[in-house]
Design a protein around this nucleic acid. Structure first.
Lengths: 181, 181
DNA sequence: CGGCGCATGTAACTTGTTACATGATTCC
DNA sequence: GGAATCATGTAACAAGTTACATGCGCCG
């Protein structure tokens, strides 16, 4: 459990960040396989800080804005490494679109076509973004030891999104042929 | 929200079932895109029943075992159809393996190889099961109006699992080449 | 006679979301 | 002047997991 803690520790292991920056990074880079809300993030930051795994650098005001920057402590690093070595426990996914597809003989084919078109568009965007990320990463592959690993993650996203798109195109075709019956 | 309610309504729309059978069906057929626990299931059954969307057929004892069979009511069907027509809201996934991969420059390559081999084996099993399900479905495609739709869901699983397996094979290769450096 | 599968459920807990509150700066 | 972005946070709620309790039937 406590997965949110490890995302935070992981990101802070690269560089000090504010809560807001952590959230933005997750939304931007982890979007296709992870999500966090502020309501989870800020309390977890506080808890990690209380337990001495991360450190709150004195809040300072930058151009009038208050911000708290956190950085990881050796204890946090230890904890992070320990987690990385443990077997992967949870793989939680809930794809509502598949649930609806499963029961879709109860509604008009047009309805499902609409749902899948939305799904398709959304993952087309993801795929574009991932391809962009890949080409940027490939150019700076040797500039940080984690770049090759991040590239593997991006590659996962590309493969899976391609599968999503292929499926949705085929399924739209199938539903259209059903609708015209 | 209230996604658990719709899984239950969906399954009961096909045939009356007991709580245990619902759980087993989800574990068996939805495993690759959904999961539920008893702690979620039984209270939700009660709530649906209290609200008149499903009906508890008088508990009866079959071969010494007490069991409650639930069946869907017209109100439940209406609710289910309404949900099916709403846009798909949530697609929640959290793939811990990708999180670990992202930060894996902090641990030995062998550690990640182990994690990914486990991931690979688990999805090999899923793929086998899905292929089996596909061939069984293809033979009874016209025996129930929802079979073609279920086949689309199974096809999703096959495509995605193939992508998972391709990724994990490639990533293991990459990590092995890193380890030997 | 022990373990597994069938069968139902609850309580305590953890996790996660949503809505709200606050307020500055930047850009149009 | 208003919207978007930066920035921090909380409270109320919803969702989900885990561990536990109970007990029958079946198979070896």
């Amino acid at each position: 459990m406590r997965q949110t803690e490890y995302v935070i520790l992981g990101l802070l292991s690269e560089s000090p960040l504010t809560g807001y920056q952590i959230k933005r990074t997750i939304d931007l880079r982890f979007r296709f396989f992870w999500n966090e809300s502020y309501g989870q993030l800020y309390p977890t930051l506080k808890s990690l800080s209380d337990r001495g795994l991360i450190e709150e650098q004195a809040m300072f005001v930058k151009e009038g804005r208050a911000q708290k920057t956190y950085c990881i402590k050796p204890e946090g690093f230890k904890e992070l490494r320990n987690w990385l070595e443990q077997p992967v426990e949870r793989e939680s996914l809930r794809l509502e679109i598949l649930l609806k597809m499963y029961f879709s003989n109860l509604v008009a084919a047009e309805t499902m076509i609409g749902h899948i078109e939305t799904f398709n568009k959304s993952h087309q965007k993801d795929l574009q973004w991932l391809k962009q990320a890949r080409s940027e990463l490939e150019q700076v592959l040797d500039q940080h030891p984690n770049h090759p690993y991040i590239l593997r993650v991006v590659d996962f996203g590309i493969k899976v999104n391609k599968a999503y798109l292929k499926w949705s195109r085929e399924t739209i075709e199938f539903l259209k042929s059903e609708a015209s019956k």
